[in-house]
Simulated scan of single mutants.
Amino acid sequence: METLVIIAIVIVVLLVLVGVVATRSSARRSSAPAAPRIEVPIGPDASAEVDRLLAAGKKIEAIKVYRDATGTRLADAKDRIDRWAPGTTAVPIVPAVQPQDPASFRASLPASVAAEIDSLLAAGRPIEAIKLVREQSRLGLAESKRVIDHWTPGTF
């Protein structure tokens, strides 16, 4: 009888250990950096259809149209539609540039985005400027802050 209790305890301990190891390995896999997102432009017909669907409040259908036109993953298509501006074919996403070089980073931005960052900084709103850099570049918070800290308004 005592041996059965000891065997049961050993089995329970082994099951707990297996559960802990499985949890740790899945946490490691999920913390791996995501593949970089690439902005895929779409044609004017698909763009007009997305505009029409969003104006009608049909976000899910707009995501489907965008996915069909670009072949992007669902999460990327949803992110893109969340940032959609009517009448555009793409919201520019700046390729991640090393934040140590603010001049090249600024040069890689569309002029309208750089001007918006200038105006946010001139208005004393650096947090909103950091958010804009993050949205446009997919840089992390620290890197975006570093870009804004070294930002030179109005120069290219």
Score class of each variant (00 low, 15 high):
L15T: 04
L15F: 06
L15Q: 07
V16I: 11
V16W: 02
L17N: 01
L17V: 07
L17C: 03
L17W: 01
L17G: 09
V18C: 06
V18M: 11
V18Y: 06
G19V: 03
G19C: 00
G19N: 01
V20D: 02
V20G: 01
V21T: 07
V21K: 08
V21I: 13
V21F: 09
V21Q: 05
A22V: 04
T23D: 09
T23S: 12
T23R: 13
T23W: 11
T23V: 09
T23F: 11
R24E: 07
S25P: 00
S26M: 07
S26A: 01
S26I: 03
S26D: 02
S26H: 03
A27T: 02
A27P: 03
A27I: 03
R28Y: 01
R28Q: 05
R28E: 05
R29V: 02
R29W: 06
R29H: 08
R29M: 09
S30E: 15
S30N: 10
S31Q: 15
S31W: 04
S31M: 14
S31G: 06
A32N: 11
A32C: 08
A32Q: 15
A32H: 10
P33T: 08
P33H: 05
P33A: 12
A34I: 08
A34M: 12
A35K: 11
A35V: 11
A35P: 02
P36C: 07
P36I: 11
R37C: 05
R37P: 04
R37Y: 13
R37A: 15
I38T: 15
I38Q: 15
I38N: 12
I38L: 15
I38Y: 14
I38S: 14
E39K: 12
E39I: 11
E39N: 15
V40H: 09
V40F: 06
P41V: 13
P41G: 04
I42N: 07
I42H: 12
G43Q: 05
P44N: 14
P44E: 14
P44H: 14
D45M: 09
D45N: 10
D45R: 10
D45F: 10
A46K: 06
A46G: 09
A46E: 09
A46F: 06
A46S: 15
A46H: 08
S47G: 15
S47P: 00
S47I: 00
S47D: 03
A48F: 08
A48R: 12
A48E: 10
A48W: 01
E49R: 13
E49L: 08
E49S: 03
E49I: 00
E49W: 00
V50C: 03
V50P: 03
V50G: 01
D51M: 07
D51T: 07
D51S: 04
D51F: 03
D51N: 08
D51Q: 05
